[in-house]
């Protein structure tokens, strides 16, 4: 190794001794124990409890209303809750499960081209879900101030779901950049698995939302 190279702070190892030394050169990192996956797992528990609370309140109030007002509709009659768009969201989410799993598979095989494709398609599905939810908000014409108990609850649940999709998309984007921009995808597969965990939890939340609000009304 030349003095000039050493002075410049760069080195090309030639002997096995130097190679061993240089293997230590980057900052030492503790052994990886799937930090992001475990941390996201805990976060998912918190998110699920949050939505469990919202659904708990929703179903309790709905049951009380229907018991007290037999024959009346829980959803205000002025509202227009169609099933087409919510069902489209459900199918979109089902497809996104497949593409998300495709992304994880590609990352495990260090296949950048497929990873890029899978992440972009999953991201587009996420954007499409937000778009469809915005369409539902406009279409249903539910007035929050009309005195019904259903309106604030529906807006809280659906609004929280949109926020969850947005958070999952941001998380997916960051992890995709880490995977595609990094030297080795193997280290970042943990991050993509963490995104997938959040994504699948999101699909479960929507499934309950779809059945509880849009199907049973």
């Amino acid at each position: 190794m030349s003095t000039a190279q050493a002075a410049a702070g760069t080195a090309v190892a030639t002997t096995s001794q130097e190679l061993t030394s240089l293997a230590f050169a980057p900052a030492p990192t503790p052994r990886r124990r799937r930090h992001l996956f475990v941390g996201t797992g805990f976060a998912v528990v918190g998110v699920m409890m949050y939505f469990a609370t919202l659904f708990g309140i929703y179903f309790t109030e709905r049951a009380s209303f229907l018991k007290a007002n037999e024959g009346q509709s829980w959803i205000p009659s002025s509202a227009n809750l169609q099933l087409t768009a919510p069902t489209m969201i459900f199918w979109t989410l089902l497809l996104s499960i497949i593409t998300m799993q495709w992304a994880i598979h590609a990352a495990a095989r260090q296949d950048r081209r497929h990873l890029l494709l899978a992440v972009v398609v999953t991201g587009l599905f996420g954007v499409a879900i937000i778009n469809q939810m915005a369409f539902i908000f406009v279409q249903m014409e539910l007035v929050i101030d009309d005195g019904s108990l259903a309106a604030p609850l529906i807006y809280t649940i659906c609004g929280s779901f949109v926020a969850l999709v947005a958070a999952a998309l941001i998380f997916l984007t960051i992890m995709a950049f880490r995977s595609l921009g990094g030297q080795s995808m193997r280290h970042t597969a943990d991050g993509l698995s963490a995104v997938a965990l959040l994504w699948y939890a999101m699909v479960l939340v929507y499934f309950i939302l779809w059945i509880g609000i849009f199907v049973t009304k």
Binding site: V45, G46, M49, Y50, F51, A52, T53, L54, I57
Partner: peptide, 12 residues
């Protein structure tokens, strides 16, 4: 899980 429930209450 407790703060998840509290957050749900507060958001409603």
């Amino acid at each position: 899980i407790s703060f998840g429930v509290l957050l749900g209450n507060v958001m409603v």
